Simulated assay, not measured.
Amino acid sequence: MSDDTASILKDAQSKMTKTVEVTKDEFTAIRTGRASAAMFQGITVEYYGAPTPLNQLASLQFPEARTVIVTPYDKTAMSATETALRESDLGVNPTNNGDTLRVVLPALTEERRRDYVKLARTKAEDGRIAIRGSRGNAKKAIEKLVKDGEIGEDEGARAEKDLEALTKKFIEQVDEALALKETELETV
């Protein structure tokens, strides 16, 4: 295999690896029965006119499985933090006691679990699409090398076969992560 095809495959592999990591990160943000810091990663608070991530404005404590105590570092950001939590897709209504916000996550209903499974499947499909996009770009680059005469057709076919194997491997990783998340969501 020439250096050109090896570098194309290596580039495709690194992009696919990143895609799998991003997909797994998105899965952690999907709520299960327990509260976790990952659930709050996507929440931004309007702080002095700038959208600021919640984890930069407040500390999160988890005294119980479904309870979160949010303590803003700056007390002037309390109402903005409360609003951001209320408007988030977590479906929570924080209780303000002056110094902290107490967030009790509601128990997941069967319908809500199904919604989260659908969301996980959507994110998994987005990951698969991104992996196939990386495969398409790499395939075009290999075909260009063959067309330009930089590599032979046999070598191009071999590289495409390796690319397909790589694609299959990474799509299986996304599917495995999805299966784990579905099991986690369906466990009461």
Rank of each mutant, 00 (worst) to 15 (best):
G133T: 04
I142N: 05
S79I: 06
R121G: 08
V70T: 13
E110A: 11
D99W: 07
P94V: 12
Q61S: 14
R132G: 05
A65Y: 04
G98E: 07
D74P: 05
A77N: 08
N97P: 10
A80R: 00
V117E: 00
Q61L: 08
E125P: 05
I142Q: 00
T122W: 13
R135P: 10
D115N: 04
S134E: 03
V70H: 06
D89L: 09
E110Q: 13
F62T: 01
T81A: 14
P106H: 01
E125M: 09
E87Q: 15
S134G: 14
F62I: 08
R86S: 05
L85S: 06
T71L: 02
T122P: 09
K75T: 13
N97K: 00
K123T: 01
A138N: 06
A65H: 11
T71V: 11
S134C: 09
P94N: 03
G136R: 12
G91C: 11
R121E: 14
R113C: 08
A84F: 07
R102F: 09
T81I: 06
A107E: 15
A130N: 11
V103A: 04
R121W: 05
G133N: 13
R135N: 15
E110P: 01
P72D: 05
I69P: 10
A124M: 05
G127M: 01
L90W: 10
A138K: 11
R102D: 08
P106A: 12
A138F: 01
F62L: 07
G127C: 14
P94Y: 02
A77W: 11
A107I: 04
R66P: 08
A120S: 12
R135T: 03
T83G: 12
P106M: 05
T81F: 05
T100D: 15
A141N: 03
L90T: 09
N97D: 14
V92H: 04
V92A: 02
V104G: 10
L105S: 11
A77I: 02
Y116N: 14
D89G: 08
L85I: 09
D89A: 12
E64N: 09
A138R: 01
L105F: 01
D74I: 06
T76P: 04
E64P: 02
L119S: 00
G98W: 04
A124T: 08
A77Q: 01
L108S: 09
A141D: 15
M78K: 06
K140L: 07
R112W: 11
A107H: 10
D99Q: 14
F62N: 06
T100P: 12
P106G: 09
R121T: 12
K140E: 06
L85E: 06
